Amino acid sequence: MTVAVIQFGGSNCDRDAVAALEHLGIDAERVWHEDGLPADATGVVLPGGFSYGDYLRAGAMAARSPIMNDVREAAAEGTPVLGVCNGAQIGCESSLTEGAFTTNESARFQCEYVHLRVENADTPWTAAYDEGDVIEIPIAHGEGRFEISDDRYDRLVAEDRVLFRYCDAAGNVTEAANPNGSRGNVAGITGEEENVGVLMPHPERATLPDLNGSTDGAGVLRGFARD
């Protein structure tokens, strides 16, 4: 099992993702986007960073890289695909998931730890948790505000496709706990099928205990180890 961590020009969390996955016993390798998706890839990570300097819109140019055709095909065949931060933006821009991530309500880059409440524990990305669990992992983004039309938001909720919502330490989903103004405090969602997930917070930065002591994000990455 080898997870392909796609590296675009401007990606800067690809090494972090590989280190975190390998710490969990999951084989991973960086793949330059021009080389195409390896035929034997058993999973895909679209990592964080600033692909192409966020030119036009964050993730817009990377979403049009030819490798994303391979990623969409793999996702359609059931391969697990996870987009983190800039990777989540790429996921939305490439129609792997719905909605869009836009400029933070504060209009500032924000780098801090946040609390997330698990909304649906019956997905590869949340199976390590229980519904209602509160975890703490960091964000680092300037365009993390999740936006989506009313009807599509209602469908996301009805289909139980919200993975995480920003909350306070007690699990209360409040306006004050929302770091970027995301619709419904949404921090992560799945695509039409649960094998595709995107989230703005960085689970790979809360997986290695020697890095900052937090391992709350490890459960997200363990989604690649599920049968």
Rank of each mutant, 00 (worst) to 15 (best):
Thr2Gln: 09
Ile6Gln: 15
Gln7Phe: 12
Phe8His: 10
Phe8Gln: 04
Gly9Phe: 03
Ser11Val: 01
Asn12Ser: 15
Asp14Leu: 06
Arg15Phe: 06
Arg15Val: 08
His23Cys: 07
Gly25Met: 14
Ile26Ala: 08
Asp27Gly: 15
Asp27Tyr: 13
Asp27Pro: 14
Gly36Leu: 13
Gly36Lys: 12
Leu37Pro: 09
Pro38Asn: 05
Ala41Cys: 04
Gly43Glu: 04
Val45Tyr: 08
Gly49Gln: 12
Asp54His: 12
Tyr55Arg: 12
Leu56Ser: 11
Leu56Ala: 06
Leu56Thr: 07
Arg57Glu: 09
Ala60Gly: 08
Met61Tyr: 12
Ala62Ile: 09
Ile67Phe: 10
Val71Ser: 12
Glu73Pro: 04
Ala74Thr: 02
Glu77Ile: 04
Gly78Met: 06
Gly78Ser: 07
Gly78Pro: 07
Thr79Ser: 03
Thr79Lys: 10
Val81Thr: 13
Leu82Val: 14
Gly83Gln: 04
Gly83Asn: 06
Val84Ser: 10
Val84Arg: 10
Asn86Val: 03
Gly87Asn: 05
Gly87Gln: 05
Gln89His: 02
Gln89Gly: 02
Cys92Gln: 09
Ser94Leu: 09
Ser95Ile: 02
Leu96Val: 14
Thr97Phe: 00
Gly99Leu: 00
Thr103Lys: 00
Asn104Val: 05
Asn104Ala: 06
Ala107Arg: 13
Gln110Leu: 12
Cys111Glu: 15
Val114Met: 09
His115Val: 07
Leu116Pro: 14
Val118Gly: 06
Glu119Thr: 00
Asn120Tyr: 10
Ala121Met: 09
Ala121Glu: 10
Ala121Lys: 10
Pro124His: 11
Thr126Cys: 15
Tyr129Cys: 03
Tyr129Ser: 09
Glu131Thr: 11
Asp133Pro: 05
Ile135Val: 15
Ile135Met: 13
Pro138Ala: 02
His141Glu: 04
His141Phe: 03
Glu147Gly: 10
Leu156Ser: 03
Ala158Asn: 14
Glu159Pro: 11
Arg161Gly: 10
Leu163Ala: 07
Leu163Asn: 03
Phe164Arg: 00
Phe164Gln: 01
Asp168Gln: 03
Ala169Pro: 11
Val173His: 13
Val173Leu: 13
Val173Pro: 14
Ala176Trp: 05
Asn178Gln: 13
Asn180Thr: 00
Asn180Gly: 00
Gly181Asp: 12
Arg183Phe: 00
Asn185Val: 09
Val186Asp: 01
Val186Leu: 04
Val186Glu: 02
Gly188Cys: 00
Gly188Trp: 00
Gly191Glu: 01
Glu192Asn: 11
Glu192Ser: 14
Glu194Gly: 04
Val196Ala: 14
Val196Thr: 15
Arg205Leu: 02
Pro209His: 05
Asp210Asn: 02
Asp210Glu: 08
Asn212Thr: 01
Gly213Ser: 04
Gly213Thr: 02
Gly213Phe: 03
Val220Gly: 01
Arg222Trp: 01
Phe224Ile: 06
Phe224Val: 04
Ala225Ile: 11
